[in-house]
């Protein structure tokens, strides 16, 4: 009896939810007076940024991005705290068989290219698709490749947390500078420059580069911690 009631209730809720999402019809314009047009227009006219997604992520809703960066930072901190082992307990990774010479020499070749791509993606975040989060993830995949290929490949934890902390401080610090110069937190206080130039968009590319460093360092740290957990 209880189960039947639950099924009926869930079914009703499920039906209306599915109906609602079907009814919304994603991909079609819905509203005349939303804020989307203002975003599209001000991105080009005020901020001189060609990637609207970047301008929304870093400037219009930059406060959310600061929060999301913090979420990632906390996740890494928590992981480090929970999987923490005393120095002498850090185990050797269990490796079934070592990588062949094709993999080792191939990844040596690929590694700089991956890092370069990652750096390119986050430096050009305001001009082309991508940005700090994507670029940072690409860099972390480069380190993942190296960690998977070489059993003894190690990443310096002090450097990682230094990069992580300094990038985070720089993000919040740039926000505070905006507060001092423009009156509101995260204000774009540098002259935006010319559209489509590499040096344009004021603080937007600087913040996104910081995000790139931070995400790259944090995800590398996560991969390293999980790989070296004593199983």
């Amino acid at each position: 009896m209880k189960k039947i009631i639950v099924i009926i209730l869930l079914g009703t809720l499920g039906f209306y939810t599915a109906h609602t999402f079907f009814d919304i019809g994603f991909g079609f314009p819905h509203f005349e007076h939303g804020i989307k047009d203002v975003y599209l227009q001000k991105t080009v006219s005020d901020l001189k940024v060609s990637n609207t997604v970047t301008s929304i992520v870093v400037n219009f809703r930059g406060f959310d991005t600061l929060g999301e960066v913090t979420v990632l930072f906390l996740a890494v901190t928590a992981l480090g705290g929970i999987l923490y082992k005393r120095r002498h307990e850090v185990g050797e990774r269990s490796v079934l068989f070592s990588a062949s010479s094709i993999v080792t020499s191939g990844s040596k070749l690929l590694f700089p290219a991956i890092i370069l791509l990652g750096v390119y993606v986050f430096i050009h975040g305001h001009l082309s698709p991508g940005g700090g989060f994507q670029g940072g993830t690409i860099i972390a995949t480069g380190f993942l490749l190296m960690l998977l290929t070489y059993e003894n490949y190690s990443v310096n934890h002090t450097v990682l947390s230094l990069v992580e902390s300094l990038a985070g401080i720089a993000f919040a610090g740039i926000g505070l500078l905006g507060f001092m110069h423009g009156g509101t937190f995260l204000q774009n206080f540098i002259e935006p420059g010319v559209l489509n130039n590499l040096f344009s968009g004021g603080v937007i590319p600087i913040i996104y580069i910081m995000v790139g460093f931070k995400v790259g360092a944090e995800l590398t740290g996560v991969i390293y911690t999980v790989l070296h957990e004593k199983g």
Binding site: L66, T70, S165, G168, G173, G175, L176
Partner: peptide
């Protein structure tokens, strides 16, 4: 009010360095 968020975040990023 924004200082309620920014100051702790700055401190949170700074703490690992201070711990060293």
């Amino acid at each position: 009010p924004v200082l309620f968020i920014v100051i702790p975040l700055l401190a949170a990023f700074l703490i690992p360095l201070l711990g060293m």
